[in-house]
Computed example of a mutant assay.
Amino acid sequence: MADTILILGNGFDIAMGRKTKYEEFIEFTNDLSSRKKYIVNFRKFIKPYKKIKLSNYKDNLYLKFINENKDNLGENWSNLEIMISNLADAIMYFKENSNDLFNHNVNESDKDYLRRLKNKLRRTNNAIAKIFVVEKFYEFNSTKNWNLLQRDDALEKLNTEFINQLDLLIELLEIYLSYIDFLDFKVNKIKPSPTALDAVNGLSRSYVLNFNYTNTLGRLFHSFKERTHFIHGQINLGRPIGQINTMVFGIEDKEVNVNSDLIPYQKYYQRVVKETGNKFEEFFIKRNYTVKNTSVVGRAVPTRVPVSKNIVIFGHSVDSLDKEIFQKSFALAEEGGYPYRFIFTYFDEPAKRSIIKNLAIILGKEKLIELTGKQNVVFVKSDDKDGMKEVLLP
């Protein structure tokens, strides 16, 4: 029987009926000061965690940016990673064009100059994020006395403020997901929902590359933790004081050279600092064998042959944010010396088109055509159990 490597994204948790979408998290953060029943229950859940002070998470800059500009941000308004990227890019723009922020030789800005600057920025790319950063800069310039600093120092303070706010956003996301874990597994005791994965024999014995912070597969299908790599870390609200939060939540590394201003936002840097490692590579390198009878001069001779690997991607958009991991996975499978097949599941046709587009960016168009032609890459609807059975390597 073939080995199975599962690559899981948030779509897996959603398919299991879990409220792990970014918009659900954002709704939760907006309701934190309300008396809604689920918030009242949340406050009871969080009370034993004495180290957590919810006041620390009030007016988070990233959430404020989304809430203030939701109507103008388009369909990606709730994609926190895109919003983080836009704001980081806006900060870098002003670090490279610092004169735009200042009225000639004066560190303070009058309302008329600010209005003209905003009008100028509206005609540029990423205008909404740039205008938000400008507004926050001048707010902090006044409230935190940054106007007394050298310009470069004030801009460094701005960057540090957004980095600190990102850390707080990650902490708040961990709190939310921990509460969802409590509701789903302790209160509601949810059961697995049917998906195409039901066709995979021995699902609990699979090797798992998990992009999620939650262990939904382990909770519902009793997969083995030692066979699971939480590549972006895992929620652990009860960890001892001083132990690092391992959750990786940031943006793509777009540059060849290291940008010291940007690296705290970037996933690769966070993976290094939080030591999430590359354990998943072992899943592709590890080669198991079986014995098959081969006909040699009319006689059946037992022969040791490598076991096939089915690499099933479920609930992941294959976004370029994670391109390095997918590129490494494809390279290791190709070098592995065993028959392999990447099986990408998709929710609907637009999702399938998006996955194909992202694969073309990650692998190159010609390589993708080659792999689909050889059936090393195939696509199955996420609820099609029979379709999954047909494409699984034996």
Results as ranks from 00 to 15, higher is better:
I5L: 01
G9S: 04
G11V: 03
G17A: 04
R18E: 13
F28C: 02
S33A: 15
F42K: 05
R43K: 15
P48N: 09
I52R: 10
Y62N: 04
N67P: 01
K70H: 03
L73D: 02
L73P: 02
S78K: 12
D89I: 07
M92C: 11
M92T: 13
M92S: 15
N99I: 11
S109N: 13
L117V: 05
K118Y: 10
K120L: 11
N126M: 05
E135W: 09
K144P: 01
A154Y: 02
T160S: 15
D184E: 14
K186L: 14
S193D: 11
G202K: 02
G218S: 09
F224C: 09
G233M: 08
I235E: 10
R239M: 05
I244Q: 15
I251H: 12
D253R: 15
N259R: 13
N259V: 12
Q270C: 04
F280E: 01
R287I: 00
R304D: 00
P306H: 03
N310D: 05
S317H: 06
K323E: 14
E334C: 09
P350F: 03
K352R: 14
L359D: 07
L359P: 03
L363S: 07
G364V: 04
L368M: 11
K374T: 08
D383A: 11
D386K: 14
K389V: 00
E390C: 07
